[in-house]
């Protein structure tokens, strides 16, 4: 086979190039890469602004509840664990068990939303909003943008639970793990480090 024919054959085998090496549909990884870059830039913006307005950020952070943030971290981690187990279970053909685990992952996603909304409500009751100061503008922007991804992630998990090929499960859970990964960095950045 001449080199040009070999290259064409290789391209037909791997139409997405290097993205074909990743688990799930490559288009999902295009989305994941876009999201991690976006969240990365938001994290860096938060970190640099914090260095400039250190007193303001310390005062703002003191009004957050790190325990609620920690509970939400445990909730998302456990949800991610169930989603990862669902892929393993589905790979042996146990569709019912996989759906049950995906249901558990989605239920914990809803728990995350409830806790986050309760946190926002407490802030609103204390008269704190998006325009209170720079800290809270970035707090609501970062956590609110992430919360939208949690909602989208639950919808994606529901979709792959209904259309439950192994490929679909790998694709849907990859997005969920990205949402989980972003929170694991956001939690210490916003709630813990002084």
């Amino acid at each position: 086979m001449d080199p040009a024919t070999a290259a064409n054959a290789a391209q037909e085998d791997r139409p997405w190039g290097a993205l074909s090496d990743l688990p799930g549909h490559p288009m999902m990884w295009v989305l994941i890469l876009t999201e991690v870059v976006t969240f990365g830039l938001l994290f860096l913006t938060f970190a640099v602004t914090k260095a400039v307005h250190s007193d303001l950020f310390a005062a703002g952070q003191a009004q957050l509840d790190p325990v609620l943030g920690g509970i939400n971290t445990l909730v998302l981690i456990t949800s991610g664990w169930l989603a990862a187990l669902a892929v393993e279970v589905r790979s042996t053909g146990q569709r019912g068990a996989a759906r049950l685990q995906l249901g558990g992952a989605m239920a914990l996603g809803l728990v995350f939303i409830v806790i986050k909304v309760a946190e926002y409500a407490a802030k609103a009751q204390a008269g704190i909003g998006l325009e209170t100061d720079t800290f809270f503008t970035l707090y609501f922007l970062l956590t609110g943008f992430h919360l939208l991804h949690v909602v989208l992630g639950i919808v994606i998990l529901a979709a792959v639970a209904l259309s439950d090929s192994i490929e679909n499960l790998k694709t849907g859970t990859a997005f969920w793990h990205m949402v989980d990964l972003v929170w694991v960095v956001m939690y210490p950045l916003v709630y813990l480090i002084g």
Binding site: P66, I77, W81, Q94, P188
Partner: peptide, 28 residues
């Protein structure tokens, strides 16, 4: 389910929980 893969996932979850509690303890 491959037992090894499931064990690996569960071990990772245990470590994630442990490190979250450690972070929460250090921060609080």
């Amino acid at each position: 389910m491959t037992q090894t893969a499931a064990r690996q996932v569960t071990r990772a979850w245990g470590l994630l929980v442990l490190l979250t509690l450690l972070s929460l303890g250090a921060g609080g």
